[in-house]
Amino acid sequence: MPRFSRWQGIVLCVAALVSTVWLAVTNQLILYIHPRYIVFTVIMTVLGLALVIASFGRSPDQEHEQEQEHEHEHEHEYEDAAPRSYRRAISVVGTVVTLVMATALVVVPPATLTTATADQRVINSTQVGSGTKTVDSAASAPAGAFARFTVLDWSSLLRQTTDASFYRDKAANVVGFITKDRDDPQNVFYVSRFVITCCAVDAQPVGVPVFLPNWQNRFAADHWVRVSGSFQTNPSTKSQQSIALVPTATTKVDQPSEPYLY
């Protein structure tokens, strides 16, 4: 068992480390973690790989010797009351699961989170984080600045004020993927993004409601779109959003290289 567990540890290390290196090289680490961790992750990965390679350098004799010493410890391994077969089954299942995970890590192409998570986590269910726009700062921003506001900026503003006059003269131009509005899926969708504080696990979906009647004729959920237009009182009667982006242009775009916002 110890020999196997050693071997398993190294295999898992290789799977995780090599994948990390490849993701870093192809600039896809940001699909999983916040950019601030990239340098640290790369340094630690290189260090980890060096240790893994060093461990290959150990002679088989040594391993064998080691293994024998551990083998008789094995006798004490499970002295708890639980039956041995049950224990063994658990451990086999655990090993299989880790190996499946490792294979997935290596084989499945990296991807962003989808609408499944956005729906499950309820869009805009949480309030603005740090570093987002406040009404005061937005009110004094020069006119051109609004064109660079992201989905996150707008959604935090929408959360703070639904005063239609505030949005007047503030043209929006945002990119995000489509998530259905629950109340009026026919006419309203959210152009949404995930906001990451640490890694994809903590992704919070944020979105701006867009009023585009029969949008399903042209788009589907999960499509990435660029929407430009202005915020107005939501023409939809069913939607609970009082202000919506009424687009002047909606075009399909490729998924951006940095799909998450921070």
Binding site: S19, L31, P110, T117
Partner: peptide, 15 residues
């Protein structure tokens, strides 16, 4: 999403 989430925990914790 399950894979993305699990992998992100691994990659985040690994270093």
């Amino acid at each position: 999403d399950l894979l993305t989430l699990s992998i992100s925990v691994i990659i985040e914790s690994l270093p």
